[in-house]
Amino acid sequence: MMKIRCAIIDDEFPARSLLKDYISKFPHLELSGTFKSPLDALPVLQGGKVDLVFLDIQMPEISGMDFLKAFHLKNIMVVITSAYPQYALEGYELDVIDYLLKPFSFERFVQSVQKAGERMQNRGSSSGNGENASSSPACIVVKADHKSYRVDTSRILFVEGLREYVAFHCIDQKLVSLDSLKNLLEVLPSDSFMRVHKSFIVNRNQVKALYGNQLQMHYTSKTVPIGQLYREEVRKKLFNL
């Protein structure tokens, strides 16, 4: 089992101690550091020494949410740990993999660890299998329904974000997998796929027509909305408008 390097960011000592104890129970989890503030942790996070962060929200210098918005933590998975449930939706919109509501049990912590393991496995499968991670894979591995599917990227019509899950709408099937649009943008061929909405990525080669603020796709009657921030780029790159 591959190692997952973890960091804890929480201004409260009891919370850091609890997470440290939970992490120590897993041989494949490696603690890279505990920090009272996100800014203290930044050098370690940007140094590529962390795979998974357990991040509190309410902290004196900068909140966990503001930290996620201000700093791009590339290839780092984030689990929010908070006593405030009202931030859950915003957290998932920032591509966190889980939201642990304090006080949380060890069993609930285990679920977060399993999600992190599945995410790392999926990344490895998608960028591996004889392909260079920087190349454009003809196929990606999608884990859904307790199976691993080899999916030809050319047969993907669009991908829809569903909080911590994504739905692959393909020519002949629909697959729901634990992943994020942010991660998929790094895996899918950049010359074929583009984000057109905060919740949608489309295969440019499967776009049939532009209708108002929606895209009509081949092989399906479903349309894909275009977000306001993406309209100009979509019109320019897809239709030369």
Rank of each mutant, 00 (worst) to 15 (best):
R5A: 06
I8K: 03
D10W: 04
L18N: 11
K20P: 01
Y22M: 00
L29R: 03
S32V: 02
T34D: 12
K36I: 06
L42Y: 03
L42M: 06
P43G: 08
P43D: 07
Q46N: 14
K49D: 09
K49V: 07
V50W: 06
V53I: 08
L55G: 11
Q58V: 11
L68C: 08
K69W: 01
L73I: 10
N75W: 03
M77C: 10
V78C: 00
I80A: 07
A83M: 06
Y84L: 13
Q86Y: 15
Q86T: 12
F104G: 05
R108V: 05
R108A: 01
Q114I: 00
G117W: 01
G117K: 00
M120Y: 06
G124L: 14
G124K: 11
S127E: 11
G128M: 10
G128N: 09
N132G: 15
A133I: 10
S134T: 14
S136G: 12
A138W: 00
V151E: 00
L157F: 00
E160R: 13
L175W: 12
S177L: 04
N183Q: 13
N183D: 12
S190G: 11
F193K: 05
F193R: 01
M194C: 08
H197N: 10
K198P: 01
F200L: 00
F200A: 08
N203K: 06
R204M: 15
N205E: 15
Y219R: 01
I226W: 10
Q228L: 15
K237R: 14
F239N: 09
F239H: 04
N240L: 08
L241M: 11
